[in-house]
Amino acid sequence: MSILVFIDQADGHIKKASFEAATYGAKLAAQLGTTAEALVLGTVSDDLSTLGQYGIKKVHTVSDASLNKMDAAVYADVIAQAAGQATVIVLSNNTTGKAVAPRLSVKLKAGLVSGAISLPDTSQGFVVRKSVFSGKAFANIAVKTDKKIIALNPNAFGTETGAGSAEVAAVQASIPASNVEVVAVNKVSGEVPLSEADIVVSGGRGLKGPENWGLVTELAQLLGAATACSRPVADIHWRPHHEHVGQTGLAIAPNLYIAIGISGAIQHLAGVNRSKTIVVINKDPEAPFFKAADYGIVGDAFEVVPKVIEAVKKIKAS
């Protein structure tokens, strides 16, 4: 029995969320008295032995270029082949994990906890805490099957590194043909992807129009942050839909979320309430967002944000 961590990669690089999954897998292995191994699909340019720093003992690779494209059916099939005797499979609950984990669950008859946020309680059975009600509550889920799959919410667990180097070895797997033909790929380049950003600067209707978004993007650039927006802003096409965070848009969990001119409707909070630190800048002291915030400034965004930008410049220069 062992733990297998599925390592997601894009363009040859390990996804940040997968280092977290590796850390989780290693800690779970220590808890269960076993070892954590990893599986990487596709061609990767990163040095995979460095996964040892996260506690992974051995990395299995299936470095077939066809696997650089994610097809849930193909991935689930190959992971199932590589899983062998592994009793717990850990993935990140990112776009890839959400596509693959449910298929894998059915294939291996392994109960799935998606959106897990902590190590299991194994004192009585196998109970994993997960985020439910769009981050407004947690549920403790008992997994009743012998094999288990845990899809870990990104930025819920953190990473931990130490000394260590993982053995890397190719594993034999037969790769089924994909029924999905990719016609075009459009990757967001030069920007921090919203789902992975440590810091997110977000704007709402309080900014009055798309022409004022320079405030948001300048602050974001200074902080190395991604930009986001509230639903009304996306709906009236001030900003693209993929920037919409909230209940029906993207749910994010950055270390820092800065909301400018967003009142904080409950549907918006549902998409951002897993952020570690929330800063709200709003001229309405009654804005509900202040109740969910860690820090706040009551003031006009057009006066406050330029000053914040100056203050960040100063601190970055010092």
């Binding site: 947690f138 549920a139 403790n140 889920i141 099957t145 109740k291 915030a293 203050a311």
Partner: peptide, 24 residues
Amino acid sequence: MTSVVSFELPPAKAGVKLVSADQP
């Protein structure tokens, strides 16, 4: 394959720390 054992609400936020608009 799974069942809900229990639910929990997240701990309440400590409360917002307000900073004056003049002191960003």
